[in-house]
Amino acid sequence: MKLALFGFGNAGGKIVDELLYHQAERDGDFVRSALAINSARTDLAKLDYVPPEQQLLLGQTHERVKGQGVGADPKLGAEVTRQDLHEVERALDEVPLYDVDAFLVLAGLGGGTGSGGAPVLSEALSEKFDEPVYGLGVLPSEEEGGRAAFNAARSFQSFVEATDNVLLFDNDAWRGSEDTVGGGYERTNRELATRLGSLFAAGNVGDVVAENAMDASDVRRTLATGGVSTIAYAETDLSPSTVRSKGLLSRFRKNGTGEDVDPAQKVSGLVRQAIQSRLTCPADVSSVERSLIVISGPPEEFSRKGLERSRHWVEEQTDSMDVLAGDNPQPDADALSAVVVLSNPTTVRRVDEMQGRAVEAKDDMAQQRADREDAISDLITDDAGELDPI
């Protein structure tokens, strides 16, 4: 599937940066265009793989922004995006729309620029183009505080309404207890890029054609439910016979047991492992409407029987017959991987928790504002109220 990427804000831009690196490392071609959009000049300067000509600074003429960011204010982020939307549309002139299957707008939902601007851009893209517009929304961790939860809960509603589907990524589910702030985000961005790359690379025609071919229409159908989606992923070493045929004897000696596992068992076990491991955002699998399974790796590792077993098992877990499954041949891959898209789950505990915390934060902020106004009034007036201002 060929994508035009729009990384909005600090988190969105960094994920696009990581996706471009991921694609270059694997000699892929699913990213046809990439644009990093931000209201803070310093955040754009941190990007390594998005070239300067594909970076857009919003709010340069806005009296409150001037290229210095929106201060975690999503209303201001939405405002400067609307003001400079013509600049984004001008950048679209460079996008090879004839070779794009979908748009993907990526943003962290707890800040200001991405949480405010991503829904605005998504709505504009949906109105102007026939291709589907997907979102990638990063939920803030609890460590980021009530303000971030408040921003995210409000942005989440707008983002889902403005897109065909929002892929969710939960920072709390992925950051380790020993991670530094910067190191944690770098690691989670790599994990996310691996999952997105495995999904969207499927169906792009290479030297080897899949026996059970996936294409862009399969991804579109799975994500056409609306709402949100979460992604499962797992990978395993290649079978010793495949390793020997590829000439990777050092890898075989290190990881191989000398015995091949039944391919059907290996594929079906990998899919189960993916879904039973961490999802990009934890969700009740039984509430999922549609699913998509993609097995990637050397073709000799594939198994039609294993794929069918996997499909039937996912049908049982989701209580839905709407499950697509297929192969993505990668002859030079050094592992076998499975990515599973779980589309439109209706029970997502993390979203419920975020919304509850956002309501509490809203009440707290209102009370703090009222208390502060009273304190300021007490400060600038005398106790007896005998003095009049000039």
Rank of each mutant, 00 (worst) to 15 (best):
I390V: 11
T230Y: 06
E131F: 09
A34Q: 06
V88N: 04
T81G: 05
K14E: 11
E87H: 14
G306P: 02
Y98F: 13
G146Q: 13
I376M: 11
P119A: 12
A34I: 07
L106V: 15
Q68K: 15
S155L: 13
L5E: 01
V323E: 00
A152W: 04
L85R: 08
S268R: 01
D179K: 08
P345E: 00
L292G: 07
S198D: 15
T42N: 14
V166W: 10
T242K: 09
L97D: 08
N344A: 13
Y233C: 06
A102C: 04
D93N: 07
E18V: 14
N151Y: 00
T42M: 12
P119E: 05
R304F: 00
G227V: 05
V65F: 00
A216Y: 14
P140I: 12
G7R: 03
Q55A: 11
G183P: 02
A370P: 00
V50Y: 05
Y49H: 15
D378C: 11
G182A: 11
D352L: 01
R41S: 10
A375N: 13
E63C: 02
G146K: 12
E87C: 07
D364M: 13
G9S: 05
P51A: 12
F169Q: 01
L270F: 00
E353D: 09
G306I: 01
A264G: 13
R26H: 15
L387Y: 14
L35T: 03
P240Y: 06
S158I: 08
E289P: 07
A173R: 09
H312V: 03
L223P: 07
E360Y: 01
I231P: 03
G182Q: 10
D237Q: 09
R221S: 15
P299I: 02
Q355F: 01
T222V: 15
E315N: 01
A375I: 11
E178P: 07
S343F: 04
V120A: 09
N328R: 11
S141Y: 09
F156D: 06
D332V: 11
R272L: 02
V228M: 01
P282F: 07
Q355H: 02
A283H: 04
F252Q: 14
L58D: 08
D48L: 14
G227E: 04
A124D: 10
S343Q: 03
V209D: 14
K266F: 02
A162M: 11
R220I: 09
Q157W: 08
E315Q: 10
F159Y: 15
S287G: 03
T346M: 01
M354V: 10
D378N: 15
D207F: 12
Q330I: 15
Q68I: 02
N151R: 02
E259N: 12
L125F: 14
N38Y: 05
A234N: 06
V50L: 12
R350I: 01
E300I: 09
T236D: 05
S291Y: 00
S33Y: 15
V50H: 07
V314E: 05
A72Y: 08
L238S: 10
R41F: 01
L106S: 08
A4T: 09
A4I: 01
Q55F: 04
I390A: 12
V138Q: 08
A201F: 09
V95W: 14
D29I: 11
A224Y: 06
Y21D: 12
L85G: 10
D170N: 13
A202C: 08
F103R: 02
N212P: 00
N212E: 02
P389A: 11
I15Q: 00
H312W: 04
